[in-house]
Design a protein around this nucleic acid. Structure first.
Lengths: 193, 193
DNA sequence: AAGTTTATTGACTCGTCAATCAACAAAAAA
DNA sequence: TTTTTTGTTGATTGACGAGTCAATAAACTT
């Protein structure tokens, strides 16, 4: 009983299922059938809407990235002052929505995907540049000439905390993760202003 | 013309080839045939010596990990004092041997492997605990009660720098990487002793 | 010399999976 | 009502790849 206007619904379901499956299995070795099954349709339909497995992966990646971007924008919209904005960015990075187990697992595998698929690499570069730029705006008034170096370090630290989270057994703890990052940030800012 | 005593030679060649292939392709989707070919033998021989692809991967992982461990031990042997030892650990982490493109690429994929293969996860946990322990010994006299938190942050930062290196286009720059980490370390130590 | 162990490979099996296709169903347009 | 567009799937194709096996050969043992 085909209803019309299914395309966006199906596509969204596939993207969601892809993230879950990659997160669950912890690798990109996920079959289109698995994804389609979790999304409640046949694998043929997945191909019908996306054309290829790679396209599905890229759509999932864009989704995670745009979710993250939206979260950051939202957090930045309600605060002002460099320090508060800095905290808002970090807060968004470790918010429950982004720091869910499956999402973190997906992130790790998107890094792997970026090694092979140019478009995935591009997407990840965009994310990194935007993060860097956001940090820099806040850091320049706070850290002056050292801003670039601090931003570089903070970015790497965030990625590293994600990486370690992917390996952790228990439930994710965004609060603890943010504490780690905040401690480093405070130390950097105290040294010199 | 079979010569005897080939086993260790073949195994070593396979391990080396595995790291190169994973690093080159940037993923674990490497066939046993590819690895065997690069190591100069048939895929059947690779199976003969290791029994399975997974066993080859694990052997490669152990090799990278033990190389890293040896480098750290070597660096620690020739210096004393907490600060110098700390620097020695970081120096080893970004030494040319460990920070080669292929090796960094392999690291990233070993993290992925650890999501699926329990033994891989165990190996990675051992590495993380040892690093943490090494850092802690040096940090306790320098950072007191904050040592734990600083060690956690430093560990994550190192992993993060590796992760970003894996995505970088150009040649690896261990010196710059170490500079990033050292800056964070100095800031942490300056704050409070 | 006969037998055993080690080294080595080409050919084969067997399963898996991305992608395609033919076919069917329902809504919309003509 | 016919036709076209949209949604949907089971079955199939074609490729690829891990792991096995039989066969060959050189080296050691007795």
């Amino acid at each position: 009983m085909p209803k019309l206007g299914m395309e966006p619904i199906r596509k969204a379901a596939l993207v969601k299922a892809t993230i879950v499956e990659i997160g669950r299995s912890g690798s990109l070795d996920v079959t289109v059938s698995q994804i389609a099954k979790r999304a409640g349709m046949s694998s043929a339909l997945a191909h019908h809407y996306y054309g290829s497995k790679e396209a599905i992966f890229l759509a999932a990646m864009r989704h995670v990235l745009s979710l993250y971007g939206a979260e950051v924008r939202g957090a930045l919209a309600v605060v002002q002052g460099p320090e508060a904005r800095l905290r808002a960015i970090l807060c968004a990075s470790f918010s429950p929505a982004n720091f869910r187990r499956e999402v973190v697992g997906a992130w790790l595998n998107f890094y792997v995907l970026a090694q092979t698929v140019p478009e995935a690499r591009r997407l990840l570069s965009v994310y990194q540049r935007r993060l860097r730029s956001n940090l820099l705006v806040c850091l320049r008034p706070l850290a002056g000439a050292r801003a670039e170096a601090v931003a570089e370090g903070l970015g790497a630290l965030i990625d590293g905390v994600y990486l370690r989270q992917a390996l952790r057994e228990g439930a994710p703890d965004g609060a603890a993760a943010m504490q780690t990052v905040l401690a480093q940030l405070d130390a950097q800012l105290q040294g010199k202003s």
